[in-house]
Design a protein around this nucleic acid. Structure first.
Length: 198
DNA sequence: AGCGTGATCTTT
DNA sequence: AAGATCACGCTG
């Protein structure tokens, strides 16, 4: 499949959160190891009117990446042990990003199993911290874009609306009412603990 | 259901 | 300088 170009990321954050479902995330590792996985769960975060967004009060040292060009990776560290992967949206100098919450592992399973310390397929990437660990994402990835030879997305047909579920976001204490979580209905790799079907 | 673990942000 | 919070995951 063709790689997704800059233009794909230049759509409103909420639409991007939906359009990312089904797309294939690729990481190339030294030794020609190819890690790939299908995105099955996302959440939208917007600078303004969204108190759960890191950037809702403006630019800081941590969140400045969210103000960069669409298609940039925002990877941050939280709870003392987890990295979380976001894909930056919205034009440069306005903050927005889509949190990638779950993926379905496809290629490079042995590497991912080693990273995660399990061989249970549905436990490899069924959460934002898990998928970052499976793909060995860390702060060195923060600020890199998805247009190079190491990280990129491959295109896939858009999901039919009947396969897309919507709910409120997971694990936040502010702006809890916003229905900005999107997921692939009945996919076993969607994170546990909230609605996975409709 | 409880808690680790450390960076970040807010308040003093 | 100190305190609170945290877009989580694992054990029990």
């Amino acid at each position: 499949m063709k790689r997704l170009e800059k233009q794909f990321y230049e759509q409103p954050t909420l639409e991007l959160a939906e359009q990312l479902l089904g797309k294939i995330f690729v990481r190339m590792l030294p030794g020609n190891i190819r890690l790939t996985a299908r995105i099955v769960e996302t959440e939208a975060y917007l600078g303004q009117d969204d108190e759960a967004c890191h950037a809702w009060r403006g630019k800081t040292a941590r969140n400045q990446i969210m103000f960069r060009a669409p298609g940039t990776m925002y990877v941050y560290f939280t709870y003392g042990c987890h990295y979380l992967l976001n894909i930056v949206s919205e034009p440069e100098e306005s903050a927005g990003a889509v949190l990638v919450r779950a993926m379905e592992p496809l290629e490079g399973l042995a590497f991912m199993e080693g990273q995660r310390g399990t061989s249970s397929l549905t436990n490899l990437m069924s959460g934002p911290g898990k998928l970052a660990q499976a793909l060995a994402l860390d702060s060195r990835c923060n600020g890199k874009d998805l247009f190079g030879d190491e990280f990129f997305l491959e295109n896939a047909p858009p999901l039919p609306a009947s396969m897309i579920g919507t709910s409120t976001r997971v694990g936040i204490s502010k702006s809890r009412e916003l229905p900005w979580r999107k997921f692939m209905i009945n996919n076993p790799h969607v994170s546990k603990g909230k609605v996975t079907r409709m």
